[in-house]
Write a protein that binds this DNA or RNA. Structure first.
Length: 578
RNA sequence: GGUGAGGUAGCUCAGCUGGUUAGAGCGCAGGACUCAUAAUCCUGAGGUCGUGAGUUCAAGUCUCACUCUCACUACCA
């Protein structure tokens, strides 16, 4: 049994997340967490809302709410959406929690003591009308390069040129449209990532089990030369910059830590909150001298998050203990990065409301449908296109036809011909030998795909195991034998029912609702729903695991199919398709 | 512009350190079966592996050039 700490990138607070966010971090983390729990590991799965930053302030303003109220409301909404998608967080926290304030400030103090923080002055656009500093992207104006009138301060969307806001002709606030903007000096704290560049490179090079996407992005930044990153912003909503006595640091009134500095720290702070609520110990998960050296820490994220998780946050962590005499915090061991799910050629977009969002998704189909489709087609090696047709195909074919129909056909037959009880009689023969061999090959492969976090492969293997059940029934054909040899028919029904239980067990990480229905119908006690297939010889016993005479029920249709008119309706509603 | 990832059957994707007739699922065609949500099982058709050169006995797999798509580019997160 291993201790496995799992975090998925914190969803930002400014709206219910779309399917791309779900598919790229929260869902795979959940599937992995569930699988590892079933295999008997000690799992802690932590997530939280990421609540600070300019977009949160502006979204609250647009909603006519105070930012704290807005975040509270959206936190509840996101927590609810996660629960409906059956995301099995051990704790879903908030980056605005007091624990994160304290820990973020503590980390900053230690970093400064260790010479890794420096105060510098930079120039930033200030909007008098809005009464606030504006991030580069919230300043718009005419592009000096191509004359485009709505160029953003960081980059021109028309010609693609990278810009500095001061380059813009006739700059104005993208928030209010006011042209009353000016450049002001402002002082900020900088995290000296460059000082730890060599340590980071060593650590990245030594890392095992990262996909190429993750290590290549990290190395790219290191190769270009790490720049020091400012970790404070001119904002009111966030974690105040304090001195050690808790008072606001001089010159940092009206400033807070940058959201990307405090967000990953929330992984730890949320664990503290979890421990406080459950009377558990958080230190054994995060401090290597308190037991965390045995923890396997796995992070899930989209590719846009990789730099922060491989460089900035590790700088914060390593910077706590640069000479091995400070607090030894846990660094990530394995990191799983995903590409994007794309929506009819473009990206999903929260701000442009393009695509399908978690709450809408559940209006039109059960969470299991989405979970299966999104994880079976996870964007592991490249961006993956979402289409309604693919969604329909994978749900109907994989869930309804292959799995659902298998459960249905054998349980109904058992109820019809064998009184709904696991029948005795007959002896295993060729078909059963084929089936056992199939399971002996495929189950270990399934486990290793999960352990390697190869989700597409794990799903393909799961499907192949379900399909093998149908193939077995064709070979065993109990309905044919029943006419002449009831005992022979009993063999097929018995093995088939055992397969139903097995299929339900391996479905649990992916489609928890349907899996529960299957296992309930089979009257499998909770203790027997774990994932201990054992070795070769134990697997051979799986098709005779249920006791003779064990009563089962035929569940209702597990998966209603998605019909063509549904697709037409959804296409119209969500604007997908041509 | 720079950097990275990717371009493999109609669609979504596997193909590790180069090695017999390039694979899977869906879709399509034909057949089988009838227990089941007209489900399932079997068989088959279908690809000059983005383009052009090169290295090699041998390249989807290595090198170079070109081309297309996407991402990142540090103050959106």
């Amino acid at each position: 049994m291993a201790k496995i700490l799992i975090t998925s990138a914190l969803p930002y607070i400014n709206g219910v997340k779309h399917l791309g966010n779900l598919a790229g971090s929260m869902l795979p983390a959940d599937v992995y967490a569930r699988a590892m729990r079933l295999m008997g590991h000690d799992v802690l799965y932590i997530c939280a809302t990421d609540e600070h930053g300019t977009p949160a302030e502006l979204a609250a303003q647009a909603a006519g709410m105070k930012v704290a109220e807005y975040c509270e409301k959206m936190h509840i909404a996101q927590k609810g959406a996660g629960a409906q998608f059956k995301l099995s967080y051990d704790y879903f926290g908030r980056s605005s929690a007091p624990s994160n304030h304290a820990l973020t400030q503590h980390f900053a103090h230690v970093l400064e003591e260790n010479g890794l923080i420096e105060e510098r002055v930079s120039q930033q656009v200030y909007s008098n009308a809005d009464g606030r500093f504006l991030p580069d992207r919230y300043v718009e104006g005419t592009c000096p390069n191509c004359g485009f009138e709505k160029a953003r301060g960081d980059q021109c969307d028309n010609c693609g040129k990278l810009l500095d806001p001061v380059d813009l002709i006739d700059p104005y606030s993208a928030v209010s449209g006011s042209k009353d903007v000016e450049v002001r000096d402002t002082n900020h704290l900088y995290l000296k990532q460059s000082a730890l560049s060599d340590d980071l490179r060593k650590w990245v090079n030594a890392a095992q089990g990262w996909p190429p996407l993750a290590s290549s992005i990290a190395l790219k930044w290191l190769d270009e030369g790490l720049r020091d990153r400012s970790i404070t912003r001119d904002l009111s909503w966030g974690i105040p910059v304090t001195d050690k006595d808790g008072s606001v640091r001089e010159g940092f009134e009206g400033k807070v830590f940058y959201v990307w500095f405090d967000a990953p720290i929330e992984y730890i702070a949320a664990t503290q909150d979890w421990a406080a609520e459950t009377d558990a110990d958080w230190e054994s998960w995060w401090l290597t001298d308190k037991g965390a050296d045995d923890v396997q820490y796995v992070q899930f994220m989209g590719k846009d998050n990789v730099a922060f998780h491989t460089l900035s946050f590790p700088t914060t962590i390593i910077g706590q203990n640069p000479k091995k005499m400070g607090e030894p915090w846990k660094l990530v061991d394995q990191l799983k990065a995903f590409n994007w799910v794309t929506w009819y050629g473009g990206k999903f977009s929260t701000s442009e409301k393009r695509g399908v969002f978690m709450d809408q998704a559940l209006d039109i189909a059960p969470s299991d449908y989405w979970r299966w489709h999104l994880i079976a087609n996870a964007p592991e090696s490249s961006d993956t296109a979402f289409t309604w047709e693919e969604f329909q195909a994978s749900v109907n074919s994989d869930l309804a036809n292959v799995l659902g129909n298998f459960v249905n056909r054998i349980t109904k037959y058992c109820v019809g011909k064998f009184e709904g009880k696991v029948p005795e009689g007959g002896e295993d023969g060729e078909a059963e030998a084929w089936l056992i061999k199939e399971l002996q090959t495929r189950l270990p492969q399934l486990v290793s795909h999960y352990e390697a976090r190869e989700f597409r492969k794990a799903m393909a293997e799961t499907r192949a195991i379900w399909a093998a059940g149908n193939e077995y029934l064709t070979q065993a054909a109990p309905w044919t034998h029943y006419k002449t040899d009831v005992d022979q028919a009993a063999v097929g029904v018995r093995a088939g029912l055992n397969l139903v239980a097995l299929f339900g067990i391996i479905a649990q990480p992916i489609i928890p609702d349907a899996a529960e229905k299957i296992l309930d119908a089979m009257n499998i006690p909770p203790a027997n729903r774990t994932w201990n297939f054992g070795k070769h010889d134990d697997i051979a016993k799986l098709i005779n695991a249920l006791p003779i005479g064990h009563a089962i029920n035929a569940p209702d249709v597990l998966f209603t199919k998605i019909e063509d008119p549904d697709i037409e309706l959804w296409t119209e509603r969500f604007g997908g398709g041509q």
